[in-house]
């Protein structure tokens, strides 16, 4: 229920109230998508095809990438880097976050790293990692070090902040209760501590993946041979703008799949004991 609906008693009659009763949520959503579709088509009609293809042309272009297997090759390269970077960032950020939550010395000691880390752009880490790892050529099999290192270093402060806040806000009354009932440490960890910081772990994962893949793609600007970022830069350099659109469409599909197929359902279900999941707070972190 929106604030406006709450406030509606100030006005005798609000059109909105009536409209709301007529339109279901999904209808409003369809309108939103429809308006976007029409605007895009109208704009596309004004511009040359390569600058802005129509929605349907874009889907066709994207299908071309998927059908000939190109999409898979480059997306799997990107995801491979992302996987390792995410893992390292969770380990590094998680360790710092737990330490910062547990004692004030670690908190004061590591806070500068986290703050400085938050201010360094992903592009900077990508550029530095590229130069340090012999112009991006140092690799383990097909896995290049530079994008992994760049993404790890960009992401870890976001993970650390979330975990830190979680550990710091653990309910000490519950720990005392568990102590009074002589519950084992293992059980306390699994049943009290982890569920207590689960929302923060979830947002660390979410933030980690969201920022991680943005930086991985930026780092692939320099990668030279594979990855979505590389293909995008290449398409731009050789003026194959249509290909850039195709990649955008493929990516949009993946984003929608992950957001609506994975994150939103977890968000809704996993924390149904909480009356208020304030993910908007995390947006400001």
């Amino acid at each position: 229920m929106s604030i406006r609906t709450q406030l509606s008693r100030y006005n005798v009659q609000l059109l909105n109230g009536d409209v709301k009763s007529l339109l279901s949520d999904s209808f409003a959503r369809m309108i939103g998508i429809g308006v976007g579709f029409v605007l895009w088509s109208l704009l596309a009609a004004q511009f040359p095809r390569e600058l802005l293809p129509t929605p349907i042309e874009t889907v066709g272009l994207a299908w071309g990438l998927v059908a000939d297997g190109t999409a898979w090759i480059h997306i799997s390269t990107t995801f491979q880097s992302l996987f390792w970077a995410f893992l390292f960032a969770m380990l590094l950020g998680g360790t710092l976050g737990v330490l910062m939550g547990l004692n004030s010395y670690s908190q004061n000691f590591f806070t500068p790293y986290v703050n400085i880390g938050l201010s360094i752009p992903g592009l900077a880490w990508a550029a530095v990692a590229f130069l340090v790892f012999s112009y991006g050529s140092i690799a383990l099999g097909t896995l290049r070090f530079a994008p992994v290192v760049a993404a790890t270093l960009t992401v870890f402060p976001y993970v650390a902040i979330n975990i830190w806040k979680g550990v710091e806000n653990i309910d000490h009354d519950l720990l005392r209760m568990a102590n009074a009932f002589s519950i084992s440490r293992r059980r306390v960890l699994w049943r009290v501590v982890l569920p207590n910081i689960a929302p923060q772990i979830f947002s660390a994962v979410r933030f980690g993946l969201a920022i991680g893949w943005k930086v991985t793609i930026i780092a692939e600007l320099f990668a030279g041979s594979a990855g979505v970022g590389y293909k995008l830069e290449h398409a731009y350099q050789v003026y194959q703008y249509e290909e850039a659109w195709a990649w955008a469409a493929v990516f949009l599909f993946i984003i929608i799949l992950i957001e609506y197929g994975v994150f939103k359902p977890i968000e809704r279900r996993a924390f149904d004991w909480r009356s208020d999941v304030e993910l908007s707070d995390i947006g400001g972190a």
Binding site: M177, S184, P195, N196, A198, F271, W273
Partner: peptide
């Protein structure tokens, strides 16, 4: 033990809260 504030785990159902201390 019964405490001043109930000290129940908000993420566990009432039944699970009871099960918790019967380790």
């Amino acid at each position: 033990h019964v405490f001043q504030s109930p000290r129940l785990m908000p993420w566990d159902s009432n039944l699970q809260n009871i099960e918790f201390v019967n380790e």
